[in-house]
Nucleic acid binder design. Structure first.
Lengths: 185, 185
DNA sequence: TTAATCATGTAACACGTTACATGATTGC
DNA sequence: GCAATCATGTAACGTGTTACATGATTAA
């Protein structure tokens, strides 16, 4: 679901090809949702079939031809309809899935030092994610200063803010977990 | 993947039927992973076929017969093999998916008051999740005091700790987002 | 000259969700 | 009398992943 509406949302900013959408998707939404190109193409043709998008074939020389996708009125309606569904949003927010916690839950079956090294690796990885997100945040901030689509980029900043507090919380948690396991750095 | 190994992990504590596994799964791992019964049954028969589990038919009167699943040596090996795969764990930790953020990202297309009410609903829902998790934490703490399987319940507490800091971070984020949107409570 | 980028996709598989079916028993 | 619990599943569908295929262009 989210992938579909993510694509609609991006196409609402302007027409794009599947390839460009893939780039844009991973650059902007990538830190909280990933889209495989194969899935993106599948969703795009499905949405074209249901009339949410139109595709224009663009013939190119030296490069493969491409298809430019554009949002239709129905597509725009589908987007705003989805956004207006607050119930659905809350229901989705409840469906948290965390594969890493699954491993920690059963880490008692491991020799203690392996569990510790697992958490150490996780801790490091959180730090890296935070740094990477810093770039995203700065890019958004710059963009916000240049473009005056306040109604939009306000929310982008809020999303970036989430990422930062989320990773910071994970980092602090990993520290506390490690000290609980008697790991003194 | 995680569902499969979650089931293996629970069966490592003791043999159970699919139905019991479903209950145990949602009670213990439910706050970070959900399992539909239909999926659980499918995974169980698949794992039986690959020799990770054995099933014993238990005939009952007045109630439907049941199948008691038990971990085999191969199953136990599969579990520890999965736990030892630190690379895989980190790779999975990178695949965050957050359907709610997808909506916030595009919330600029909504009238401002609707976006605000979306975040307010989210905020409330975080509070409820925190309360519910408090029960889980207390249950784990009690259990920890009674049973002395320290090597195991230490990790359960760490997982519960994660839940708490995660929901608290979400709550604080929602507050900051709301004040950024000019919502004074 | 090797790899990456551009640009499209197909096929098969894995995992997750929804809806349905059965039929006795227990608690309100 | 009605709903929930016990206990199993099947079928169909939706979504996500992996691997593969094509073939020119461009930068290291």
């Amino acid at each position: 679901m989210s992938l579909k509406y993510g694509l609609l949302g991006l196409l609402n900013y302007g027409s794009m090809t599947g390839y460009e959408l893939g780039k844009a998707f991973n650059a902007s939404l990538g830190f909280f949702w990933q889209g495989q190109t194969s899935q993106i193409y599948r969703e795009l043709s499905a949405m074209e079939r249901s009339g949410w998008l139109t595709a224009t074939r663009v013939v190119q020389e030296g490069r493969p031809n491409k298809k430019l996708y554009a949002l239709t009125d129905e597509g725009k309606q589908a987007l705003t309809g989805w956004l207006s569904d607050a119930e659905g949003a809350i229901a989705e927010a409840l469906c948290v899935r965390n594969a890493f916690l699954m491993r920690v839950f059963f880490a008692g079956e491991l020799p203690p030092e392996r569990a510790v090294s697992l958490l150490r690796a996780f801790r490091e990885q959180c730090g890296q994610a935070l740094e990477k997100l810093g770039d995203t945040s700065r890019a958004i901030a710059e963009y916000s200063a240049l473009v005056s689509a306040e109604s939009r980029n306000k929310y982008w900043r809020i999303v970036a803010m989430f990422g930062e507090s989320f990773y910071r919380a994970e980092l602090e948690w990993a520290d506390r977990a490690l000290s609980l396991l008697g790991d003194t750095p």
